[in-house]
Design a protein around this nucleic acid. Structure first.
Lengths: 235, 235
DNA sequence: TATCTGCTGTGGTCCGACCACGCAAGGTAG
DNA sequence: CTACCTTGCGTGGTCGGACCACAGCAGATA
């Protein structure tokens, strides 16, 4: 058992039993090291891991906002993990697209038209209707739009996963624009498809919204010359 | 910019440009520290994070398997992140179940009956048919079955997500057995539903497999008294 | 030739020190 | 009495050094 793992286990236990709750402060690094009979380095390594996982947040100085305190940001871990594993080329665009389809079709079918996420999606929809947008700006809004729609379903985990995928989505969507025969044409199609998705959710058409968003995602990648996300081994 | 972040960025860059590839060794901690003009502690903190993310693996000693070398295990980050955030009570069972439905319905619809994952699922199916299984043993196999079916779709990211959810699935499925009116009855139903899912995949019935696995997942949680995964705010 | 024994480099752990930061209490000038 | 300023103190951030256990490898030995 490595020393920092002991610290991780201790903190995990404190969290599970409720002795440590959201917003509370951890003991100081020096105190924690003495309490668990490990070095301060080991404590710091554990805290670094928790920080990377989005479980705690560290700040120097004194006062109520200083020190290491418990947060709850499930997205940081997913986002950096996905980014890193895409750096190792272990993750392909196909995988991202398919995961989007799986998550977003479910989310579209369960989206609540009265949620904050839906309102944000509507605002982004309006912003994307501006005529003087460049491709990069449009795709930035597009990625945020899809994250917002997904969060309208009210599922913390699915929202976190979609949020974590945002950067990857944006990057690859941008890279694929060069493969498109006519960006303006595609952009206008995307706009009308977005409106269709929002309309379907607003009228409570779960199946319609689900089908529309699937076609919306798959058609873009098909149009960009990837032959559709389902046929990675296509001729 | 914190020191360990500098190390993370350097390694991420090495990975992206391909100077560091899967299976290769990182420079020693002391060498890396000197090269980047940071302390060895900072290097270690960065490596710890990468280790928690499943990007590298450290081993003491000498020889080809010693030192810190690049791996590719996207599951470790997800699994520990999900576990930690469930400890903070930021994730609920409802969220897990809904995510399962989203991922597994897609995976069932895209599962390949000739893949290794499908073969493993069939083997687990046979193992679950044994009559002398306790609830815990059955649910362990059940969780592995669902992960295997999901991996049959051939998507690295979705497989990783499902694998990461396995521990959580198993835990909560086990806790819910006490709510069931008749475990033997439910268990037999689960068995036949599993056979139905496998049969649907084998005959290429995407829609059928998808519907079956959704009902399979949702019915269990409904039967356990949660009123269905979609009605978390039910009376 | 076969075996043993150091040597070397690896990560693992610990200690002590110093720094920058930022609030809070106290002193100080008005 | 009020408003400002100084100082103290605890926080995380960083650094250098030291020692340990481990595992392979090369040279010495039987």
């Amino acid at each position: 058992m490595k020393s920092h793992q002991l610290v991780l286990n201790w903190i995990d236990d404190e969290l599970q039993t409720g002795r440590l709750a959201l917003g509370q402060r951890l003991p100081g690094e020096r105190a924690l090291a003495q309490q668990l009979s490990v070095s301060r380095n080991s404590v710091r390594e554990a805290i670094r891991i928790l920080e990377a996982m989005g479980v705690v947040r560290s700040a120097v100085g004194s006062g109520p906002d200083a020190g290491t305190l418990v947060t709850a940001d499930p997205t940081t871990a997913l986002a950096s993990a996905i980014k890193l594993h895409m750096s190792t080329s272990h993750l392909q665009v196909k995988d991202i697209v398919q995961t989007r389809v799986a998550l977003e079709t479910w989310a579209a079918a369960h989206a609540d038209a009265k949620s904050k996420g839906f309102e944000e999606a509507e605002a982004l929809l309006a912003a994307m209707d501006a005529k003087d947008l460049g491709a990069a700006e449009f795709l930035t809004l597009d990625a945020r739009f899809h994250v917002a729609v997904s969060s309208a379903a009210g599922n913390v985990l699915i929202s976190a996963m979609m949020f974590s995928l945002r950067e990857s989505i944006q990057r690859y969507a941008g890279e694929l624009t060069s493969n498109l025969p006519d960006w303006e044409l595609t952009c206008n199609r995307l706009r009308s498809e977005h409106h269709g998705i929002i309309a379907a959710i607003r009228r409570g058409d779960s199946v319609g919204a689900s089908d529309l968003i699937r076609d919306h995602i798959e058609n873009y990648y098909r149009e960009a010359g990837l032959g559709g996300p389902d046929t990675s081994s296509a001729p």
